[in-house]
């Protein structure tokens, strides 16, 4: 099962390598990882989506993260009220005029828009939670998806 975890870390040299290294050394799977600075420049925020076979593995992942000296806090969103979002960019074969109307209707349904339309390609941007992203990607399929880039999930607790 996939779990969303956030980790507040000291913004120090090598801290990303410590977190990533922990996952590879202990054989845990990371589905996505997003890192950025916070209001406090000395602290970085990481959102990790991890794959854990069972509760015990998830527990170990959290404990091992906590054990890293540079880690300030670990938050597991599994049973916590939170908001999570992901931003995606999708490259489509340029839709014809008729198709474009259909596409725009679809995009309005989601928080999505065409950010670039040039020659024979269009790039679409969407920000949504996982279920919607999945839906949108399926709905976009018939338009001819050429490329997909995702930021990975970011999450915030209440």
């Amino acid at each position: 099962m996939k779990h969303t975890i956030s980790v507040l870390v000291e913004n120090k040299f090598g801290v990303l390598a410590r977190v990533a290294g922990l996952f590879s050394a202990r054989g845990y799977n990371i589905s996505s990882l997003a890192v950025s600075e916070t209001l406090d420049a000395g602290v970085s925020y990481m959102t990790l989506v991890v794959e854990a076979r069972d509760e015990d593995v998830l527990e170990q992942i959290k404990k091992q993260l906590n054990k890293l000296i540079d880690v300030l806090t670990v938050t597991d969103f599994t049973k916590k009220e939170h908001v999570d979002r992901e931003l995606i960019l999708v490259k489509l074969k340029s839709p014809g005029i008729k198709e474009k109307e259909k596409l725009e209707k679809l995009l309005r349904k989601y928080v999505a828009k065409i950010v670039q339309h040039k020659n024979d390609t269009a790039i679409i941007e969407a920000v949504a939670e996982q279920a919607q992203i999945k839906e949108l990607l399926e709905a976009l399929e018939p338009f001819g998806v050429k490329e997909l880039v995702r930021t990975g999930r970011v999450a915030m607790a209440y």
């Binding site: 040299f13 090598g14 390598a17 410590r18 290294g21 050394a25």
Partner: peptide
């Protein structure tokens, strides 16, 4: 050295 020893130390430092 900090890279090599990261998984086998409790912590490590490169002092710049």
């Amino acid at each position: 050295v900090t890279g090599i020893t990261r998984p086998i130390t409790k912590h490590n430092y490169l002092v710049k």
